[in-house]
C-alpha cells in the first residue's frame, strides 16, 4: 500500500514538473488569442526563453535573474510578432512560422558565441529553488521520498504557474482590462467605436504571450533540467498551443489540458523506471489521439474568439 502511494506521488510530481513549462506557454497563447492575434511562434519564443534563462542563470549564478531574462527575451520576440501583425497587417500564421525560425536560430547563434561553439549551455550552478524543501527530510515535518515530498517538494516555477493561471483568469474575467482584451478579440470594430485602443491592447497581449512563453522555456531549462540544449524545446510550444485550444481558450481549461499532456509524460517516465513492458511510444501518443478525439467530439469551431486571425485596420472602419 505504501509503495502504491509512493508511486502515485511520483507520478503526480512528475506530471506537475512536466506540465509547468506547458502551462506558462499555454497561458501566453490564451492571452494573445483572446485579443484576436494567433501566435504559432510560441515555440520559437519558448526556445529562446529556455536559452536566455539558462545562459543568464549560468553567468549570473542567479536563477531568478535567468527566469526574468527568459521572459524578457520571449517578450522581445513577442514585440516583433506584434509589430508585424498589428502594425503591418502581417499574416499571423506566416509571421508565427518566421518567429519559430528566428527564435530558435537566434538562441543557437548566441549560444555558439557564448559557449565556445556549442549549441547547448553549460550546467547552471543553481536551479530554480524548491521553496518547500525545508519541510521534507530526516527529522522534518515529512520524510523524504514520501508521498508529500514527491508531490509538494517542487520547483518554485510549478507554484508560480498555478498562481499565474489564477492571475490570468482573474484579469481576463474580473477586470476592465480583461474585458477590453476579450472585446478586442471578439469584435475589434465595436471595441474601437467604444474608445478602446485596439492597437495598444493587441500589442500588450502579444508581448505578454512572448513573456509567458519565455517563462515556459526557462521553466524547462533551469528547473526541469539544468541547462539549455538544442533539443530541449522540441515541439513544446506547439503542444502548449494545442492545450490552449483543447482548453477552449480559457486559462483554467488550458491548465487541465497541460496537466493531461504532463501526465502522459509522467506515466511514460514512471513505467520506464519500473521496466514495465508497456509500449512507451503508444502511451506517449495517447494525449495527442485524445486531443484529436475531443476536438472532433466536443470542441466546435465556435469557441474561438470571433476576430481571431483577422486583421484590424482602423482606417477601414472609423
Amino acid at each position: 500500500m505504501e509503495l502504491i502511494i509512493q508511486d502515485l506521488g511520483f507520478i503526480i510530481g512528475t506530471t506537475l514538473m512536466y506540465s509547468t513549462p506547458l502551462i506558462f506557454t499555454s497561458l501566453g497563447g490564451v492571452i494573445t488569442e483572446r485579443s484576436g492575434v494567433i501566435n504559432i511562434g510560441l515555440e520559437g519564443m519558448m526556445y529562446f526563453g529556455a536559452f536566455a534563462g539558462a545562459a543568464v542563470a549560468y553567468f549570473s549564478q542567479n536563477p531568478w535573474l535567468g527566469l526574468l531574462c527568459a521572459a524578457l527575451g520571449g517578450a522581445f520576440w513577442g514585440l516583433v510578432h506584434a509589430i508585424a501583425c498589428v502594425s503591418f497587417s502581417a499574416e499571423q500564421i506566416v509571421s508565427g512560422i518566421a518567429l519559430n525560425f528566428l527564435g530558435a536560430g537566434s538562441a543557437l547563434f548566441i549560444s555558439r558565441l557564448l559557449f565556445d561553439g556549442a549549441t547547448q549551455t553549460l550546467t547552471v550552478a543553481r536551479k530554480i529553488p524548491q521553496p518547500l524543501d525545508f519541510l521534507f527530510g530526516e527529522g522534518k515535518m515529512f520524510p523524504s521520498s514520501g508521498f508529500m515530498d514527491l508531490v509538494f517538494n517542487r520547483f518554485a516555477t510549478v507554484y508560480l504557474a498555478f498562481f499565474l493561471v489564477f492571475v490570468v483568469w482573474f484579469v481576463l474575467y474580473k477586470t476592465k482590462l480583461g474585458m477590453r482584451v476579450r472585446a478586442v478579440g471578439e469584435n475589434p470594430e465595436a471595441a474601437n467605436t467604444l474608445g478602446i485602443n485596439v492597437t495598444r491592447i493587441r500589442y500588450g497581449a502579444v508581448i505578454m504571450s512572448g513573456f509567458f512563453a519565455g517563462l515556459g522555456g526557462a521553466a524547462m531549462s533551469i528547473a526541469v533540467v539544468s541547462r539549455f540544449s538544442n533539443t530541449l524545446i522540441s515541439g513544446h510550444g506547439f503542444i502548449a498551443l494545442a492545450a490552449m485550444i483543447f482548453g477552449k481558450w480559457k486559462p483554467q481549461g488550458a491548465l487541465v489540458a497541460c496537466l493531461l499532456f504532463g501526465a502522459a509524460k509522467g506515466f511514460e517516465i514512471f513505467l520506464g523506471s519500473k521496466g514495465v513492458p508497456v509500449a512507451g511510444d503508444i502511451l506517449a501518443m495517447l494525449p495527442y489521439v485524445l486531443t484529436l478525439i475531443i476536438l472532433v467530439g466536443f470542441v466546435g469551431k465556435t469557441t474561438a474568439p470571433a476576430a481571431i486571425g483577422k486583421i484590424f485596420d482602423k482606417g477601414d472602419h472609423s
Partner: peptide, 21 residues
C-alpha cells in the same frame, strides 16, 4: 555560427508575411 541561416530564413519569411512594410 551556422544558425545565421535560420535567422536569414526567418527574416525572409517575416518580410514575406508583411508586404505592407
Amino acid at each position: 555560427p551556422t544558425e545565421v541561416i535560420n535567422i536569414v530564413v526567418g527574416t525572409i519569411i517575416l518580410f514575406i508575411a508583411m508586404p505592407k512594410l
